[in-house]
C-alpha cells in the first residue's frame, strides 16, 4: 500500500511541471499585461513595476526564478493585489471553496443516494420515475439557470435568504443546492443502476432468506457493493466540485478560489493564475489517488490485483 501511495505522489511531479510550463508560457502570449489599465500608466511607472516584479528579465530567467521559488513553497506576489502574496490569497479563498464544495458534495451524496435507493426498490413505477425524472432535470439544468431561479424564489420572492454573499450560515443554502444538484442527480442515477444490478444477486436472496430486515439487507449488504461506481465517481467529482465552482461563486458573489481564478485571468495576474493552477493540479491528483486507495479498501479484489 505504501508503495502504491508513493507511486501516486511521484506521478505528481511531471504533471505539475508540465502544467506550470504550459501555463507559464501561454499566459504570456495573451495580449495585455498586468499593468495595462483604462487610464494608462506612464512608461516610467510601468518600467518600475516591471523591474520590481522581475518582468524586465528574459522570460527563461523568470521561468527559472519561478520554479526556484516554487520549490521553497513561495508562489510569489500577486501583481493585481500588491500587498498580498499568492500564498495568502489561496489561504484565504481555498477554505471558502472547500466549504462550499464539501457541503455541496454532502448534499449530493445524501440526496443522490436516497433518491437512487428509493427508485431502485420499485423499478418502473412512480416511485422510480419521479425521482429519476427530477434527477434528469437536475443533470440537464445548468447552475447558471438553477441559481438565479432559486434566488428569485427564496431571496427575492419569499425574502427568506440573501441573494448573494457568504456571511451567514443561511447564505450557504442556495449555493450548495445549486452546486450540488447536478452531482446529486448523477449519483442517484449511478446508485439506481448499480442497485438494480446488485438486488437480484444470490447473496441478497440469501440475506433475505436468513430473515434480515429489509433495511439491513439494503444498507448493509446491497449498498456496500452498489457504492463502488459511486466511489470511483467521487474522486474526480470532489476535485471538480471544489475547483470548478466558479460559476456558482460568481452567481452568489462568493469569495472563493474559482472566482479568484477567473479574475486573475482577466487581470493578467500571472503569478496568481500559475499559483492556482499548481494548487488545482495538486488537488486533482491527490483526490484521484485518495479514491484509488479508498476503492482498494472497499474492494479486496482490486487490492489483490494491484
Amino acid at each position: 500500500m505504501i508503495k502504491f501511495i508513493l507511486k501516486r505522489l511521484l506521478e505528481l511531479i511531471p504533471v505539475l511541471l508540465i502544467s506550470i510550463t504550459i501555463v507559464f508560457f501561454m499566459i504570456r502570449l495573451a495580449p495585455g499585461g498586468p499593468f495595462t489599465e483604462e487610464k494608462s500608466f506612464s512608461a516610467e511607472a510601468i518600467a518600475r513595476l516591471n523591474e520590481h516584479y522581475g518582468l524586465d528579465k528574459p522570460i527563461l530567467v523568470q521561468y527559472g526564478t519561478y520554479l526556484g521559488n516554487l520549490l521553497k513553497g513561495d508562489l510569489g506576489p500577486s501583481f493585481q493585489y500588491p500587498s498580498r502574496s499568492v500564498n495568502e490569497i489561496i489561504a484565504e479563498t481555498f477554505p471558502v471553496s472547500l466549504e462550499l464544495g464539501a457541503l455541496a458534495m454532502l448534499f449530493a451524496l445524501i440526496v443522490g443516494l436516497l433518491a437512487g435507493i428509493v427508485a431502485s426498490l420499485r423499478p418502473n413505477t412512480v416511485q422510480d420515475h419521479l425521482p429519476m425524472g427530477i434527477a434528469m432535470t437536475g443533470i440537464c439544468m445548468p447552475s447558471f439557470v438553477l441559481g438565479p431561479i432559486l434566488i428569485l424564489i427564496f431571496g427575492l420572492g419569499l425574502g427568506w435568504l440573501n441573494a448573494s454573499g457568504w456571511e451567514t450560515a443561511s447564505d450557504r443554502i442556495l449555493p450548495v443546492i445549486t452546486l450540488g444538484s447536478a452531482y446529486a442527480a448523477y449519483i442517484s442515477r449511478l446508485t439506481r443502476g448499480s442497485m438494480l444490478e446488485v438486488l437480484p444477486a444470490d447473496y441478497i436472496r440469501t440475506a433475505r432468506a436468513k430473515g434480515l430486515s429489509e433495511g439491513k439487507v439494503i444498507f448493509k449488504h446491497a449498498l456496500k457493493n452498489a457504492l463502488l461506481p459511486v466511489v470511483s465517481f467521487l474522486g474526480p467529482a470532489t476535485a471538480g466540485i471544489i475547483t470548478g465552482s466558479f460559476v456558482v461563486e460568481t452567481i452568489f458573489n462568493i469569495p472563493g478560489m474559482g472566482r479568484m481564478f477567473v479574475l486573475g485571468a482577466f487581470n493578467r495576474d500571472y503569478t496568481l493564475i500559475l499559483g492556482l493552477v499548481v494548487f488545482f493540479a495538486l488537488l486533482v491528483v491527490l483526490f484521484n489517488a485518495f479514491v484509488d486507495i479508498l476503492l482498494g479498501l472497499l474492494n479486496p479484489k482490486l487490492r489483490m490485483d494491484s
Binding site: 434566488i151 427575492l156 425574502g159 440573501n162 441573494a163 448573494s164 454573499g165 460568481t250 458573489n253 479574475l263
Partner: peptide
C-alpha cells in the same frame, strides 16, 4: 462585479 447580481442584492435588501 456583476451588475445583475448587485441589483438582485439591492432588491433582497442587502
Amino acid at each position: 462585479g456583476d451588475h445583475t447580481i448587485e441589483e438582485r442584492s439591492f432588491r433582497a435588501g442587502q
